[in-house]
Design a protein around this nucleic acid. Structure first.
Lengths: 205, 205, 205, 205
DNA sequence: AATGAATGAGCTTTCATTCAT
DNA sequence: GATGAATGAAAGCTCATTCAT
C-alpha cells in the first residue's frame, strides 16, 4: 500500500491544491527555507497529517510545484509562437520572443528566484530546471536551423545554448535583482546582440 | 572591547586561516547548509571556541570567505589584461578574455556554485556579488567605450550588462552543471556572438 | 496558527501537567538556573519537542508556574478569612492571619524561595510578584480600614505596606533561611508588634 | 604555591582594585549574570590572565566585593550611632536610625539588589548576608536591651529579628522596586509601628 | 480521509577558565 | 607580573516527520 495518497475524490484534490497554493505563496514571500510545514498547512487550513498524505515530504512538494510552475513558464513563452512563421526571423521576431521570456517571469518572479537559487546546490531541483532548459534550448535550436541558410552559424546547438544563456541571465538580472537601468534598454541591446549574431558572416569590422 | 578577535600574533593568524581553509573545502564539498560549525573546526583541528573568537557567526565567516574568493576571481580575469591594447579589440582579444573568465572559475567551481546559489535568496551574499558584478561590468563598459568609434553600440552600459550576463551564464552552465557539449564549442559561439555584436552596423541580413 | 499549543485533548492536558509537575519539583530541588529543559522532559517522561509545543520557552513555563503557585498561595492565606468578623480585630485574629501566611509557605518553600530570588533581577517575575503583593496589601488595607475607628493609623495604605513587608520578610527568614530561633517566638513578637501598632494612640512611653 | 596572587606591590594592588571597581559598575548596570569576565577586564583595562591571578574565579570576586560592600553598608548605618545615648530611645531616634538604613542603600541600590537576589539561591552569598544580618540584629537587640526597663519586650532576640526584618523589607520595597507611594510615608508608618511596639504594655485597645 | 500530539536528532552560540608565551 | 589565544562543556530551541486516534 502506497503511503502517499493520490486524490481521486473531489475533496482530496481540493485539499492537495490548497496545500500547493498556500506553499506557493509562502515560498515566494518568505523563502523556501524560511517556510515550515506548520505554516503551510496553517495557511492551507488543513492538518499536518493531510500534508503527509499527499506529499512524501517537503521536498516532494517543492519538486511537484516546480514542475507545475515551469510548465506554465514554458507555455507562456512558446504558446504564442505556435503560429509563427519561423523561416523569416527578423529583428522584431527576436525582440518579441525575448519580451515573451521576460513576461513569463512575471507569473511569480519570487518563486522563480527562490527555486532557481537552489538549482546549483540541489541535484533534484537542477534536474527539473535542466529538463526545462533542454526543451527551451531545443526551441531556439529549431529557430536557428529553420533559418540556417540565411545564417552562418556553424554550431547550432552551441549557439542555441549561448543565446539561451544570455537571455536567461539578462532576465534574471532584470527580474530578480532589479537592474538600475531600464528593462527596455536591456531588451534592446540583447535583441541587437542576438540579431547581429545571426548575420555575423557579413563583413566583420 | 570587540567580541571578535582580530589576530595579531602568528598563532592567531594561523588559526583563523586554518578555519577558513577547512570551511572552504567543506563548503565546496558538502554545501554550505550541509556543513556545520563542528565539522569545520574538526577539520581545521581547532576548538569551537576559537571559531567564535574569530568569526561572529557562520554567516560572517561565509561573507569574509566570499569577499576573498571574489577578489581572487576578479584578479584572475583582469590582471592579464593590464598591458592590453584595448583600442583594437579583435576576435582573438575577445576570446582571450572569455577564456580568462572561464579559467577564473577553476579556482573553485564548487565554492562559486555554492555561494552563487545563495545569491538570489540571501541579501548579504547578493550585495557582495553585486559589487563584483558592478566592477566587472565597468571593465566591459570601458572596453566598449574605448572601441566605440569602430562600433555602433548606442547604449554602452546596457550592452556591457548584456554581454556580461551572457558570458557569466555560459560559464556557469559549463562549470556548474557541465554541458553535454564541449566547453570549447560554447566559447567559440559566445565569442562569435559578442564579436558580431561589435560589428553589427555592417550590412545586417 | 499559534506556535504554542493549547492542549484540548486529554492526552495533551496530561502532557502539559506532567511537564509542569516535573519542573516544579526540579526547580525546587536544583534551582531554576540549575535545571535545564532536557532534565525536565526527562523527569516528565516526554520529549523535548513536546516541551516546546506547550511552552514558548523555559521562561514562559516558569511564569505560568509562578502564577499558578501564587494563586494557591493567596488562596491558602485568605480563603479561611472569608467568614471572618473583621470588624473586631483582636490579637488572636492577627496571630491567626500570620499563622495562615506562614502555613501558605509550606506549599513549597523551596519553589517560593527560588522564584522570589529572581524577583529583584527579573522584571517579568517581579511583575507577577507585584500583582500578588498588591492584592495582599489590599486585603491588609481593608482590615485596617474596617477597624479604623478603633485605630489611630493615619495612612492606611502605607501602614498596610509596612505590615505586609514585615510579615513577608519574617516568613522568608523563617522559611527560607531557617532562623536559629523558633518560628513560634518570631510569630509571637510579630503579632505583638502589629497588635501594638493598632493601639499606638494610647499613652505612648 | 598558591595560584591566587596576593598583591603586595603598588601595581598589583591597583590592578586588583581596577578589576573590582569595573565589576562593581557592570554588575550594578547589567546584572551579575549579564556581565561576563571579558567585559570586566575590558572595562578595567587589564587582561583576562590578570583577572585569574587575583581571583580564583568569578564567584570569588563577587564574594569579596560583597563583603566590602556590606562593610560599607554597615558602617553607613551604625557609625553615626556611636555617640548615641541609646538609653532614652524616643520616636525621633528610631526614625533617625531608619533613615540611616534607607540612606545606606543609596551607596548602590543596584548592586545591593543584584546580590540580594542571589541570597536565596546561593549558599555562599547567603552566608555573607547572614553574617551581616546577625551583626545588625545584634545592634537592634542591644538597643532593646538598653531600654528594656521601659519596654515590655519579653523576647529581645525575636523582637530584634522581627524589627530588623520589617525595616529591611520596607527598604527593599522602596529602594529596589520603587513603591508607588512616597518613601517618607513608609518611613513614618514604619517608625510608628516600631515605636508603638516599644510601648505596647500600655493599655492596648 | 483527516487530525494533531508526540518525537528527537541536530544546530548555533556562550563563556568561565587554563596555560604557553 | 602580565598577556590573550585556545578550550569545550553546556544549553536552548527548531522542525520535518510519524502514527495513534
Amino acid at each position: 500500500m502506497s503511503k502517499v495518497r493520490t486524490p481521486k475524490q473531489h475533496r482530496g484534490i481540493q485539499t492537495k491544491n490548497r496545500i500547493m497554493k498556500a506553499a506557493f505563496q509562502l515560498f515566494a514571500k518568505k523563502g523556501i527555507h524560511g517556510t515550515n510545514s506548520k505554516e503551510i498547512v496553517g495557511k492551507a487550513g488543513v492538518s499536518i497529517g493531510s500534508f503527509y498524505s499527499y506529499f512524501k515530504n517537503k521536498k516532494t512538494l517543492l519538486l511537484e510545484m516546480l514542475e507545475d510552475y515551469l510548465d506554465r513558464h514554458y507555455t507562456t513563452i512558446w504558446k504564442p509562437m505556435d503560429n509563427f512563421s519561423i523561416h523569416e526571423l527578423g529583428r522584431d521576431d527576436i525582440k518579441l520572443i525575448i519580451e515573451s521570456v521576460f513576461k513569463a517571469y512575471d507569473i511569480s518572479p519570487e518563486f522563480h528566484r527562490q527555486t532557481h537559487a537552489l538549482r546549483y546546490s540541489d541535484p533534484d531541483i537542477n534536474r527539473i530546471y535542466d529538463r526545462e532548459r533542454n526543451r527551451e534550448v531545443e526551441q531556439v535550436k529549431h529557430l536557428i536551423e529553420n533559418n540556417i541558410t540565411r545564417l552562418s552559424v556553424k554550431d547550432p546547438l552551441a549557439a542555441a545554448i549561448v543565446i539561451h544563456n544570455a537571455v536567461e541571465n539578462v532576465a534574471h538580472t532584470a527580474k530578480f535583482i532589479g537592474s538600475k537601468i531600464d528593462e527596455k534598454r536591456l531588451i534592446n541591446e540583447l535583441t541587437d546582440m542576438i540579431y547581429s549574431f545571426f548575420s555575423k558572416e557579413t563583413t566583420p569590422l
